[in-house]
C-alpha cells in the first residue's frame, strides 16, 4: 500500500465512526414508533382513564379519585389483589420445584445436544394445542367423576370423590403450574447447558460431593436462568384470567378476572384502576427479580 493510501485511510476513518451511531439509531425507529403507539400511549391512557368519573352506564373525562378510593376500600378488589399475589407466589414456587429438576436433568445430565433439544421440544408439545383446550382438558381429569378420582376410588384409596380437585384454588394452581412450567424449564436448562463440564469436574477433583457442588457451583451459575424463568412465569401468571375462570368456576377472582368483568360491564375507570395496580405490581416484581442477579453480566 502506498503512503498516500495509508494517509487517506487514517483521515477518513474517524469521520465514518462519528457518523455511524446516528445512522444506526434509525434501526430503532420502527420499534420505537410501534411501542409508543401501541404500548406507551395506551398505558398513559389507562392511567388517565383511571381518574375519570364513572357512572353506571357512562364515563366522563372529569378527573376524580373516586375509582381509586373504591378500589382500595372494597373487600372484593383487595381480596382479588391478595388472591393474585398468593396464587402467583404458589405457582412461582411450584414451577421452580417441578421445573428445576427437569432442567437439571436436561441441561446437565443429558450430554447429547440432539437429545437435549428433543427433550426441550417435548416440554413445549402441550403448546401445540390451543390454550382453551389445555385448560378445559383439566376438567375430565380433575372433576368429581374425573380420571384422578375414578382411579383413586377404584384402587380403594378413597371412598368418596375428592371435591377440592376441581373448581377450587388448587385446580387453578395445578393448571397454571402445568401451563407455565415450560417457561421455567427453558431458561434454566439453557443456563445449565452453558456450564463447562470441566468446572464441575474441577469441583469434584477438589473433593466436593454432588450436593456441595450443586449448592456452591451449579445453583449460583443457574440463577440467571431461574430469574429469567421467574420473570416469564410472573408476568404471565399475574396477568392471568382464563385459567382461573375455567378451572375455578368463577370462585377464584384474580385482578385479571376483575378487569374482564369491569370491561364487560363498561366500567372502564374501575378496569383502568385494576390495570394500573396490576402494571405497578408486575413492574415491582420484575424489578425485584432483576436485583437477585446482574443479568448484564450474563449476556
Amino acid at each position: 500500500m502506498s503512503m498516500m493510501a495509508v494517509a487517506e485511510q487514517t483521515e477518513t476513518e474517524p469521520v465514518v465512526e462519528k457518523k455511524s451511531p446516528g445512522k444506526a439509531l434509525w434501526l430503532l425507529a420502527p420499534g420505537v414508533i410501534w411501542m409508543s403507539l401501541f404500548l406507551v400511549l395506551p398505558m398513559l391512557m389507562m392511567v388517565y382513564v383511571s381518574f375519570w368519573t364513572q357512572t353506571t352506564f357512562t364515563i366522563e373525562p372529569t378527573l376524580t379519585l373516586k375509582s381509586w378510593v373504591t378500589f382500595f376500600t372494597s373487600d372484593t378488589y383487595l381480596g382479588a389483589l391478595w388472591t393474585t399475589v398468593r396464587i402467583w407466589l404458589i405457582v412461582l414456587v411450584a414451577t421452580v420445584v417441578v421445573g428445576y429438576p427437569a432442567a437439571l436433568f436436561v441441561g446437565l445430565f443429558v450430554k447429547n445436544k440432539a437429545l437435549q433439544t428433543v427433550l426441550l421440544v417435548l416440554c413445549v408439545i402441550p403448546f401445540w394445542t390451543s390454550f382453551l383446550i389445555r385448560v378445559l382438558a383439566w376438567r375430565p381429569m380433575l372433576g368429581k367423576e374425573g380420571a384422578i378420582n375414578m382411579i383413586l376410588m377404584n384402587l380403594g384409596i378413597t371412598d368418596a370423590p375428592i371435591e377440592v380437585l376441581l373448581f377450587s384454588e388448587l385446580s387453578v394452581i395445578i393448571g397454571m403450574t402445568q401451563i407455565y412450567c415450560v417457561f421455567m424449564v427453558g431458561p434454566i436448562a439453557f443456563m445449565l447447558g452453558r456450564i463447562d463440564t470441566s468446572i464441575i469436574e474441577a469441583a469434584q477433583d477438589l473433593g466436593a460431593g454432588f450436593w456441595r457442588i450443586f449448592r456452591t457451583i451449579i445453583l449460583p451459575l443457574s440463577m440467571p436462568g431461574v430469574v429469567v424463568g421467574a420473570i416469564f412465569v410472573s408476568v404471565m401468571v399475574l396477568g392471568e384470567f382464563a385459567t382461573s375462570a375455567a378451572l375455578s368456576g368463577r370462585k377464584v377472582n384474580l385482578l385479571g378476572n376483575i378487569i374482564v368483568t369491569q370491561v364487560g360491564s363498561l366500567k372502564w375507570a374501575f378496569a383502568a384502576v385494576a390495570g394500573v395496580v396490576l402494571t405497578i405490581l408486575m413492574g415491582a416484581v420484575v424489578a425485584a427479580l432483576l436485583r437477585i442477579v446482574d443479568l448484564r453480566k450474563e449476556l
Partner: peptide
Amino acid sequence: GIGFVFQNFALFPHLSVAQNIAFGLENRD
C-alpha cells in the same frame, strides 16, 4: 486426593480469586 489442573483452568466464574482457592479446603467431603 489427586489434584487436576485443567487446560482451560476451569475456574469457578462466580467466585473471586481467594474464593476459588479456598473452595477445596471448605467444600471437600
